[in-house]
Design a protein around this nucleic acid. Sequence first.
DNA 1: GATCATTTTGCAACCGGTTGCAAAAGAATC
DNA 2: GATTCTTTTGCAACCGGTTGCAAAATGATC
Lengths: 334, 334
Amino acid sequence: MAATLKDVAARAGVSRSAVSRTFTDGASVSGKMRRKVEKAAAELGYSPNVLARSLTTRRTKLIGLISNNFHNPIFLEVFDLFTRKLQERGLRPLLVNLSDETDPENSVRMLRQYSVDGVVVASSTLPPGFSKAFRDAGMPVVNSFGRYSSTPQVHVVGIDNRECGRMAARALVERGYKNVAFLGGPESATSTQDRFAGFQEEMAMHPDIAVSYSFATAYSFDAGRAEMQRLLASNPQTEAYFCGDDVLSIGVLSAVQDAGLRVPENVGLIGLNDMEMAGWQNINLTTIRQPIAQIINSSVELMVAMLDEPDRYPEARLFPCEVVERGTLRPLPT
Amino acid sequence: MAATLKDVAARAGVSRSAVSRTFTDGASVSGKMRRKVEKAAAELGYSPNVLARSLTTRRTKLIGLISNNFHNPIFLEVFDLFTRKLQERGLRPLLVNLSDETDPENSVRMLRQYSVDGVVVASSTLPPGFSKAFRDAGMPVVNSFGRYSSTPQVHVVGIDNRECGRMAARALVERGYKNVAFLGGPESATSTQDRFAGFQEEMAMHPDIAVSYSFATAYSFDAGRAEMQRLLASNPQTEAYFCGDDVLSIGVLSAVQDAGLRVPENVGLIGLNDMEMAGWQNINLTTIRQPIAQIINSSVELMVAMLDEPDRYPEARLFPCEVVERGTLRPLPT
DNA sequence: GATCATTTTGCAACCGGTTGCAAAAGAATC
DNA sequence: GATTCTTTTGCAACCGGTTGCAAAATGATC
């Protein structure tokens, strides 16, 4: 069995408090005592039990990392960055997969049972009720990749999806397309709704451009491909599409290529995310870059701040996106 | 503050032990008592603190889920399945990102501090010293996607990489290729070494076939592409490649296409993994399917078994792979 | 209703730590 | 060296649970 505080105290011939103090920073211990204890601890291979400690300190350093996006390659990057950043701060991600969950109650109970210090909800598709349920249970919550609201109920870090919609629209307008379409992700996702709203808003300023829209059933290759196959038959006149995200775009791309059409000559595409794969030379997708690393850094910083100040007033932190020009839209007129 | 056992006991007018017992299954409580306690608990929204409980039961239900593969899309699937399967068993994955870590010591300490019940090492590239270090620290360990050994030192669940190498070789032989190559992942990864050994072993039985080999610097798109660009210049006579894994293959594919060559007419490719993307119609990669779901199910089952029987004798569980025929190898002669 | 076996309950100690408080030790001052 | 102030240390209670044991309650039997 692993050595405990008591063992170390006995070996060093000091009180248990003394041992505890040498392992708590900021506590008052003399140099002599510290050396004695550290020697005994090293000999026994002791390191303090964080969970027992948490009982009195009320800090576990556990952070619930919650997501339901386990099929979008971008999320591998998200998990990579979150785990790294949390680890750097000495926090430990307890990963929770909510893919099939519709009711927050179980998750709330579980997170409370493990006394997590906070919860990061990393998802653009999880219903907002989840974040609120965690907050209502008294846990600090950051919703990363969540929906912007001017009166946020929980902390949100992400992008302005509406502005992204406008940005995509402008990219198409600037390139002279006259018949464009929005091919969104699932209509129920707030990210889809906001991107759509922004897209329409901008397009409303260009009455000479024909605009149509439709929604794929998921942010996935298959859904994008299937929807595009349908559209190629029903709306062959569309010149360019703003697709819900990059995976969806790649599905769309494959449908276009299979139909014997060329990109960008016959059909233009712009995606959203700029996932690693979008830059692969055989995909080479023009897309809107979502600054994932910044979003995650900021989320973790915010979480750390909230640990000290749980009642911090909820804020929305939005990061600007930018168009990454690759090969799936015709070039800008000079 | 969340209600504690003491609060519930007070409200129900019973002893703390009684409350504890109604929340411990297998404990002796009368129906009347149980109802009383459950009523009080419901009113207070009480649920037991798992961490405090773990102090006496010595079970946290935390499982360290350790990986250093946060760039290979297949691992998103791996994390999805692991989290689901662990959750189904009431276990909680504590995700540890070891991407930049070279020394197991810190990880061992951290996992001990959190009293994890066990450790799943999900990686084909992490040095075997890590798994052993965890085992030596007294934690049950399952190394998923690890290296097969006839005398395993920790539990290993995965595939027989050597047999996969043979299988790939046979696939190329059967299709009549006379000049083939092994294009492996990083030479230091045991998976690369074993696949290479199997490949050579089988090829040794076909002296009429020219065999060459090289290694990419990582299991990644860029590494595959770069290596293939080099090979296309230096070894243009090679007819078909067995590539280290699917991401690598896609990089290779892109280099081939960029060079104006056609697949499978000019160059044949076979990958390994059968990740979701391999089936995308614009990639359509012939590959060797690694049964990920089975490996993960089995890993979790094994972990659960070890929780009851920590000194279980280490075993290797290997699952058979199969060739998935798509469009990057010429068809079998009839 | 008394006797005995069985179940249910509460007491108190413990799991591995932290911490307020007062006593002990050390440092500074005269 | 005595006095005072400051720092260091140990005691004991506590964090939120579990559990062995003995006492109390219940049930079975006559």
